[in-house]
Computed example of a mutant assay.
Amino acid sequence: MTVHPRGWRKSSRSGRVSNCVEVGRVGDGAAVRDTKNRELGYVAATRQQWTAFLDAVKNNRFE
C-alpha cells in the first residue's frame, strides 16, 4: 500500500515566490517537495528524522 502525503503547505516567508519547498504529512512524519517540480516526487522522513532536521535548522547547524 502506498501512502500519499496530504496537506501540502509552503512557508509563509516564501510570499509569492514559486521557487521554494512544500511540506506535507505522511503517516506520522513529513514529506518535502520542490514547488517548481512537483511531478518529480518527494522525500519522506519519519517523525524522529523530521524533528531532528527541524532542530538542526533552528540551531544553525547547517551554516
Rank of each mutant, 00 (worst) to 15 (best):
W50K: 06
V57C: 12
N19T: 14
P5N: 11
K10A: 09
C20A: 09
R25L: 14
S12N: 13
R61S: 07
D28G: 04
E63D: 15
N60Y: 06
T35Q: 14
H4L: 01
P5E: 09
R16K: 13
V23A: 04
R16D: 05
R25V: 13
K10S: 13
R25E: 11
Q49P: 00
W50S: 04
R38I: 08
M1L: 15
Q49Y: 05
C20D: 11
V17L: 03
V17G: 13
V23Q: 06
T2H: 07
V21P: 05
A30N: 14
R33T: 13
N19A: 03
G7L: 14
N37D: 12
T2W: 02
R13A: 08
A44K: 02
A44F: 00
V26S: 00
L54Q: 04
G24N: 07
H4Q: 04
P5L: 06
A30L: 15
V21C: 08
R16F: 07
N60W: 10
K36Y: 11
R13Y: 14
W50D: 01
F53G: 01
A56V: 03
P5W: 11
K36W: 09
S18C: 07
L54P: 01
R38V: 10
V23M: 04
K10M: 12
V3P: 01
K10P: 07
A45S: 05
R47Q: 05
D28F: 09
H4A: 10
T51Y: 00
S18A: 15
Q49D: 12
V26L: 07
M1Y: 10
V57G: 00
L40H: 10
R61L: 01
G24I: 11
A52N: 10
E39C: 12
C20F: 08
Q49H: 02
D55M: 00
A52K: 02
D28N: 13
G27I: 10
R61G: 01
Q49W: 05
R13P: 00
V23Y: 07
V32H: 10
E39G: 14
R47V: 02
F53I: 03
P5C: 06
K36P: 03
D28I: 06
N37E: 12
R9L: 12
S11G: 04
N37F: 13
Y42N: 05
G41I: 01
R9C: 12
L40I: 10
G27A: 04
K36V: 15
M1C: 11
E22L: 04
W8K: 12
K10D: 09
Q48F: 03
G41H: 03
G7H: 13
G29C: 04
K58D: 04
R38C: 03
E63G: 15
A31F: 15
R25P: 00
E63S: 14
R38S: 05
A56W: 00
W50T: 10
F62Q: 08
N59I: 07
F62M: 07
G15N: 05
H4I: 03
V17A: 15
N19L: 00
M1D: 12
T46K: 00
Q49A: 11
G7N: 15
G24Y: 14
N60P: 04
S12Y: 09
Q49N: 04
S12L: 10
E22N: 09
N19P: 02
A45Y: 14
R33G: 12
G27R: 02
N37T: 11
A30H: 15
T46F: 01
P5G: 12
C20R: 05
S18V: 13
E63N: 14
T46E: 00
D28E: 15
